[in-house]
Amino acid sequence: MDLLALADFNLVARHGGFGRAARAAARPKATLSRRVAELESSLSLRLFERGGHTLKLTEEGQALYERSSRLLTELDETVAAIASGGDRPRGRLRISAPLLFSQTAMGKLAAGFALKYPEVRLEVTAEDRAIDMVEESYDLVIRVNPDPDETLVGRIFLRDRLVVVASPDLVRPAANSVVPVVIRGTAEQPITWALTGPGAKSSLAIDPVLRLSSIIMVRDAVRTGVGAGRLPASLVSHDLTTGRLVHWGDVDGPSIALWTLYSSRRLLSARVSAFLGYLAEVFPTGTSDEFAAYMAD
């Protein structure tokens, strides 16, 4: 594929017309029209719908523009970095992060990163849904215990664990007694919680008295004494230290791992490398205690 023709196609698509693109780039309109026509011919695709006074991307043209514009931007930045004798992070960095992590830490992280790398324009979206990084133009995704994906490369930067906690006013029931609990979400839940403690395992028969959509909401409800809850240790560390909550045991199951994920089909940009390095500086050990201290600071 002719990269120059592809760049001209992107120029026209970005400006919404041959005339506007020609004026913006100080290029002949006829040249741009010819090069886009050559690209369409080589691909055997119509990239634009040409009306009397309008120019609109076809479905195929929109797909090509969305995917190629980012690649051309990365190529331009790479060439500029090499020409300037360094690989200085600059440009837009789009990140998708889980809601809880965003609420408790991402604002502070984003501000610190922006101060350290002022030429990067960081955009963070808080969401827990599965996303397509390429289709939705994200550079980096942060997720909790993600499913394996051969199109993504990842690394763990934080680990946490789930603990069962309750208000001191809520008496832990005797064996085989049912305990009121606060649960996140409305999905079907097990009738018991398996716990591990010093040298022993146990279980709690549970009665979900509240179902809430947010971990923060669960913690706030548990604080009132309405029921026990399963929560990340980092989120309740301060409450346990001050005695506002008491620890009933660790949840018997896999730990919580926060991953950074990025596409294996792209070269790692200076922006992504800088953000990964910044996370390593902020969380050098990646433990729940370190994360709790960061949130409390």
Results as ranks from 00 to 15, higher is better:
Val124Asp: 01
Ala126Leu: 02
Ala126Ser: 12
Ala126Lys: 07
Ala126Trp: 08
Ala126Pro: 07
Glu127His: 04
Asp128Tyr: 01
Asp128Arg: 01
Ala130Gln: 03
Asp132Tyr: 09
Met133Cys: 09
Met133His: 10
Met133Arg: 05
Glu135Asn: 02
Glu135Lys: 15
Glu135His: 05
Glu135Arg: 15
Glu136Trp: 10
Glu136Lys: 04
Glu136Cys: 08
Glu136Thr: 05
Glu136Arg: 02
Glu136His: 05
Ser137Leu: 10
Ser137Gln: 15
Tyr138His: 11
Tyr138Pro: 03
Tyr138Leu: 14
Asp139Pro: 00
Asp139Met: 03
Asp139Phe: 05
Leu140Ser: 05
Arg143His: 14
Val144Arg: 05
Pro146Asn: 05
Asp147Pro: 06
Pro148Gly: 12
Pro148Asn: 12
Pro148Glu: 15
Pro148Tyr: 12
Asp149Tyr: 02
Asp149Trp: 02
Glu150Pro: 09
Glu150Lys: 07
Glu150Val: 05
Glu150His: 06
Glu150Met: 05
Thr151Phe: 07
Thr151Gln: 12
Thr151Glu: 15
Leu152Cys: 03
Val153Tyr: 03
Val153Ala: 13
Gly154Cys: 07
Gly154Asn: 13
Gly154His: 11
Arg155Cys: 05
Arg155Phe: 05
Ile156Pro: 00
Leu158Gln: 11
Leu158His: 06
Arg159Val: 08
Arg159Pro: 09
Asp160Thr: 14
Asp160Phe: 15
Asp160Asn: 13
Asp160Cys: 14
Arg161Ala: 09
Leu162Ile: 04
Leu162Gln: 08
Val163Glu: 07
Val163Phe: 10
Val164Thr: 02
Val165Phe: 09
Ala166Lys: 10
Ser167Glu: 05
Ser167Pro: 11
Ser167Gln: 09
Asp169Trp: 00
Asp169Thr: 13
Val171Gly: 10
Pro173Met: 14
Ala175Ile: 10
Asn176Pro: 01
Asn176Met: 12
Asn176Thr: 13
Asn176Leu: 11
Asn176Ser: 09
Asn176Gln: 09
Asn176Gly: 07
Ser177Leu: 14
Val178Asp: 06
Val178Lys: 14
Val178Thr: 15
Val179Asp: 06
Val179Gln: 13
Val179Arg: 09
Pro180Arg: 04
Pro180Thr: 12
Val181Gln: 05
Val182Cys: 06
Val182Glu: 02
Arg184Phe: 00
Arg184His: 04
Gly185Gln: 13
Gly185Thr: 11
Thr186Ile: 06
Thr186Val: 14
Thr186Gly: 10
Glu188Ser: 11
Glu188Arg: 15
Pro190Phe: 14
Pro190Gly: 14
Thr192Ser: 11
Trp193Ile: 15
Trp193Tyr: 11
Leu195Gly: 10
Gly197His: 13
Pro198Ser: 07
Ala200His: 08
Lys201Asn: 04
Lys201Gly: 07
Lys201Arg: 03
Ser202Lys: 05
Ser202His: 01
Ser203Met: 11
Ser203Gly: 00
Leu204Gln: 08
Leu204Ser: 07
Leu204Ala: 07
Ala205Met: 11
Ala205Gly: 00
Ile206Asp: 08
Ile206Gly: 01
Ile206His: 06
Asp207Leu: 15
Asp207Asn: 14
Asp207Met: 06
Pro208Glu: 06
Pro208Val: 04
Pro208Lys: 01
